[in-house]
Design a protein around this nucleic acid. Structure first.
Length: 465
RNA sequence: GGAGAGGUGGCGGAGCGGUUGAACGCGCCGGUCUCGAAAACCGGUAUGGCCUUCGGGUCAUCGAGGGUUCGAAUCCCUCCCUCUCCGCCA
């Protein structure tokens, strides 16, 4: 969430941010509620202050009288009762006033809070304006020697590519029918070398982060409380994307939600904590199963492994001191780790600078990585797909938006608590990454060449099929 | 799932409903002493909000949320969490 003080000082900055991101939020209404709430709270506090003061002054006096009242005769009791009534008059009045203010505060607070959570993080000043993914800007691309996404696969390789669906079918790597039988559309079962390849890639990526780059390996819960989802910024706006386990319907005290990314667990881990400055930067990674309802994506990428409800992902998270330059440096570094991995896997990819309209509420900057997928895109004159880029990674710079929501802080040199900056980035998500991997490394005979880095994770196997 | 015990500051641990934001101890920081250190002694040591003439003022917080009361860490209710025993179990 954003800093309300900043909002008060420069509301236009946040109005403009919401507009740029295409998010509708009534900033004026929020300011109005904020002002009303602060006035009411201030009033209530001064009344409380008086109540406390009176209570301290005459509380013991009152208590003594009430004690005496118990064993007083009728005449004394009457006197005592009158005195008690006098003493209690002002405090009773205060109590009523405070309660009245309570009710008025409760009237504004829910809307105030809901609006506050909705105000997006302003995009960084150098993020290009744009309405949607159409306006994203390519930063750079890389291809292994001897391959160029600009020219057709058939021309370069001397044979027409099969789609990953055809390859999967021929090689028996995935059973979609049984997946759908058990769990419905967008479910699948990786079989044989399909499952081995999936595990090999995850392990390669995990080792890449932990062993090569020293990130702390962690496991995370993938079933979490609502607070984790709100704290990491996935709720309330993305509520319909998460599977909801309604344990409260069965008598439990709270519901649970399936996480769509390991980021939720890696960040939620530190929620409500004040971290020692010496522990920063925190660099951690996890491999976790991710669940996404894909609400609103009906019919989109309906076939194959590209868009599914359940997948596994190696995720990297960095939490560091609140500093702009450090933030940008980490962003580049984390992208570098991904590029290393994709280059080792010999997959053509490009980096896309997301425009303001494609950022989402919590990011100030986001760079997507897309891999070249020969079997994607529109059909060419020969009736075969022309190939297209497909998003496989996303690297977000969140500044303090997420740590503020999570109430995650550290102490600076002056012993002041500060919200650190956070970033997260996919290392690899599978089986989605299998789509480009299978298609790019397919051979004319329909077999798949296993890139060298993966071979140790497949018992030295050089080829599938 | 059944039975019981309990959640207080960085940690340990007090707390008849009324100067208890919280005794005491440990830890930590500063000081005295010392060539230096230890010991001893003295002082300080939560987080957040709002206001501020930047000195400070004020409110909230004793697992969470409600309630009783003029007044709640203390009484009542609900929930969350932890521990012990039994049952089940990868």
């Amino acid at each position: 969430m954003i800093d309300l003080k900043q909002l008060r000082e420069d509301p236009d900055h946040f109005r403009e941010a919401a507009r740029a991101k295409g998010i509708v939020v009534d900033v004026d209404r929020l300011l109005e509620l904020d002002e009303a709430r602060r006035t009411l709270v201030a009033e209530q506090e001064s009344l409380r202050s008086e109540q406390k003061r009176i209570s301290k002054e005459m509380g013991p006096e009152l208590g003594r009288r009430k004690g005496r009242l118990k064993k007083a005769d009728a005449e004394e009791a009457a006197v005592l009762q009158r005195e008690i009534a006098e003493l209690e008059a002002r405090p009773s009045e205060l109590k009523a006033l405070i309660q009245g203010l309570d009710e008025r505060i409760e009237l504004v607070e829910p809307e105030w809070r809901a609006l506050w959570l909705k105000v997006p993080q302003p995009p960084a000043s150098d993020v290009p304006p744009g309405a949607s993914a159409e306006d994203n800007v390519e930063l750079r691309r890389w291809s292994p020697d001897g391959f160029d996404p600009g020219t057709s696969f058939t021309e370069q390789k001397g044979f027409a590519p099969r789609t990953h669906l055809q390859l999967i079918e021929q090689l028996g790597l995935v059973d979609f029918e049984r997946g759908v039988k058990m769990a419905g559309s967008r479910h699948y079962v990786l079989v044989g070398d399909g499952m081995r390849l999936h595990q090999a890639i995850l392990r390669l990526a995990f080792d890449h982060m932990t062993q090569t780059h020293g990130f702390t390996p962690m496991s995370v819960p993938v079933i979490v409380r609502e607070e984790c989802m709100v704290g990491t910024g996935f709720f309330p706006s993305g509520r319909e994307q998460a599977y909801h386990i309604e344990e409260s319907q069965r008598g439990a005290g709270h519901d649970l939600f399936l996480t769509g990314t390991g980021e939720v667990g890696l960040m939620g881990y530190f929620a409500d904590e004040i971290i020692d400055r010496e522990r920063l930067p925190i660099t951690c990674t996890t491999v976790s199963t991710c669940f996404r309802r894909e609400a609103g994506a009906a019919g989109k990428d309906a076939a194959g492994l590209y868009r599914v409800h359940q997948f596994d992902k190696v995720e990297q998270v960095v939490i560091h001191e609140a500093d702009e330059a450090t933030h940008r440096a980490w962003h580049g570094r984390m992208l570098g780790y991904v590029e290393e991995l994709l280059q080792q896997l010999e997959l053509p990819y490009r980096l896309l600078q997301c425009c303001t309209g494609d950022l989402g509420a919590k990011n100030e900057d986001m760079i997507d990585v897309e891999c070249w997928i020969p079997g994607r895109g529109k059909d060419g004159p020969d009736g075969r797909p022309l190939g297209d880029w497909g998003e496989t990674h996303s690297a977000s710079r969140l500044r303090d938006y997420q740590t503020r929501r999570l109430n995650l802080r550290y102490r600076d040199e002056d012993r002041k608590t500060v919200f650190p900056y956070a970033l997260n980035n996919t290392v690899v998500a599978s089986p989605r990454i299998l789509v480009p991997l299978l298609e790019i490394h397919q051979q004319e005979d329909g077999s798949i060449r296993v890139p060298e880095v993966l071979r140790p994770y497949l018992g030295g196997q050089e080829r599938i099929g």
